[in-house]
């Protein structure tokens, strides 16, 4: 059995585990219900021409990091503490297949939930007279999937490193606060403040903004704003109107993919060297 076969087997069974544990249904239900509510609320809005995708984008963008971290932070550590890994690693399944496989499976699950949650709004929107831009709709689905993948990577990476579910939950909450609430942007400022002798210099150096742009939520906002001007909501990041190179959409995409590689790579690196 090749490495690829055992990875594929693990992904398939992990997806089926989320069905057996009704995790998939819960996620699909949350997105679908919120989607239906949003399309209804949008149809009732007065003044502007009702439009589907921007409103879905904003709210799903707020929801996705929270759900990915909340649902998946225990994915690996739970199997470790309850002894399921004694069975899995008694079989020819590698540690890498488990970390990467969990990431792929849970990413598929969150993407499926997002896509289903969006698709159910289409017929309802059509009936209620809410405009849908098909190209933007597909673009938003792709963007949200990417966001889901990034935060699933954080959740799985954390889960591979910590030894108890409690720590995984706390760490996941920390990641959410750090990135979603833009605490990240304050870190370089704090460093600057200290380095400058406990006062801010008159001009902010370039690297402070560069570091701030490495926040996955900022990268995501920059990517979305670059694709379409009316996709601006849902984050605490404010994409600049005149972006420098590290605020360009392409850079944002690279940053998000970089975080995925870093989180999963780091998780694997620690997990393969640890005692169960």
């Amino acid at each position: 059995m090749s490495r690829f076969d055992s990875l594929a087997l693990f992904v398939r069974e992990d997806v089926r585990d989320t069905i057996r544990e009704r995790q998939l249904y819960a996620l699909v239900g949350i997105y679908a219900l919120l989607g239906l509510f949003l399309v209804y609320a949008e149809a009732q809005s007065i003044g502007t021409e009702p439009e589907l995708t921007p409103v879905l984008f904003s709210f799903f963008t707020m929801l996705t990091p929270l759900l990915a971290l909340g649902f998946f932070a225990s994915s690996i550590v739970e199997k470790r503490t309850n002894g399921a890994f004694k069975i899995v690693f008694g079989l020819p399944v590698g540690r890498g297949a488990v970390v990467v496989g969990t990431f792929l499976a849970r990413t598929l699950v969150v993407c499926a939930a997002v896509v289903v949650g969006m698709i159910v709004t289409v017929p309802v929107g059509a009936v209620l007279g809410v405009a849908i831009d098909p190209a933007q709709f597909v673009g938003v689905a792709a963007l949200l999937s990417l966001l889901g993948a990034a935060f699933t990577a954080f959740a799985v990476g954390i889960s591979a490193v910590v030894r108890t579910s409690t720590r995984a939950t706390v760490a996941a909450f920390g990641v959410f606060v750090l990135f979603f609430f833009q605490l990240w942007a304050q870190l370089p400022r704090a460093v600057l403040y200290v380095v400058n002798g406990f006062s801010y210099p008159e001009t902010t150096p370039e690297w402070v903004d560069l570091v701030a742009a490495l926040n996955p939520m900022s990268a995501y906002a920059n990517l979305a704003a670059g694709l379409s001007a009316d996709l601006g909501g849902g984050t605490f990041a404010s994409p600049p109107t005149d972006p420098v190179f590290y605020e360009e959409p392409a850079f944002g995409l690279a940053v998000l993919l970089g975080w995925v590689v870093l989180a999963i790579g780091g998780g694997y690196w620690r997990f393969q060297a640890t005692d169960l």
Binding site: D17, N82, K86, G90
Partner: peptide
């Protein structure tokens, strides 16, 4: 093994 647990459900 010793101390195993079920894999999910």
């Amino acid at each position: 093994p010793d101390g195993y647990g079920a894999v999910g459900e």
